[in-house]
């Protein structure tokens, strides 16, 4: 029967499939060392009962934990998914090289937070929607005069019409 004891590797107290799900999740942040993955799984599952549940519940917990961490670290309201953009920033500035402490350390290093904020991908600024109206060109004005004379009051049309 697993017990809630974060000081020992989670593999000893978390269901194997939940443990595998946690490993996969944190691989996405660039963590590959066994000890880091254990610490991070414990960091997510500590004090919760999710480990007694399905891996899906543990993953939800991990996502929520990371979103909370990113909102604290980035200190800003990001458009779109905080987790996706935060994770990209974390991976782009190679946060995993600092080990699990990059996430578990309290308070967070200001230098690292600054680096993280600078790495948040901003592919484009806020859009200001406008329309480039298609220009009307009368390709053959003399022919147009004739057309109007012949067909009377037919409305102008865009040449692409």
């Amino acid at each position: 029967m697993p017990t809630s004891r974060p000081s020992v590797p989670p593999s000893t107290w978390v269901r194997p499939e939940t443990c595998a799900a946690m490993d996969t999740f944190f691989h996405g942040f660039g963590f590959t060392a066994r000890e880091d993955l254990d610490v991070l799984a414990a960091w997510v599952l500590e004090g919760s009962t999710a480990h007694r549940e399905e891996p899906r519940a543990a993953l939800s917990l991990a996502r929520a934990r990371m979103e909370q961490w990113f909102s604290k670290a980035l200190g800003q309201e990001l458009e779109g998914s905080l987790l996706a953009r935060g994770r990209a920033a974390f991976v782009l500035c190679d946060g995993a090289r600092l080990g699990a402490r990059a996430l578990t350390r309290e308070p967070l290093s200001q230098d690292f937070a600054r680096m993280l904020r600078a790495a948040v991908p901003v592919p484009a600024p806020v859009q200001v929607a406008s329309v480039m109206p298609e220009q009307q060109l009368v390709l053959w004005p003399f022919g147009e005069v004739l057309r109007r004379w012949w067909r009377g009051a037919q409305a102008d049309v865009s040449i692409s019409g």
Binding site: G28, F29, G80, A84, R87, L92, P121, P123, A124
Partner: peptide, 12 residues
């Protein structure tokens, strides 16, 4: 890196 970045850009 490619995975995290690509997904972040997709979601934006």
């Amino acid at each position: 890196r490619a995975h995290a970045l690509h997904l972040a850009l997709l979601e934006s």
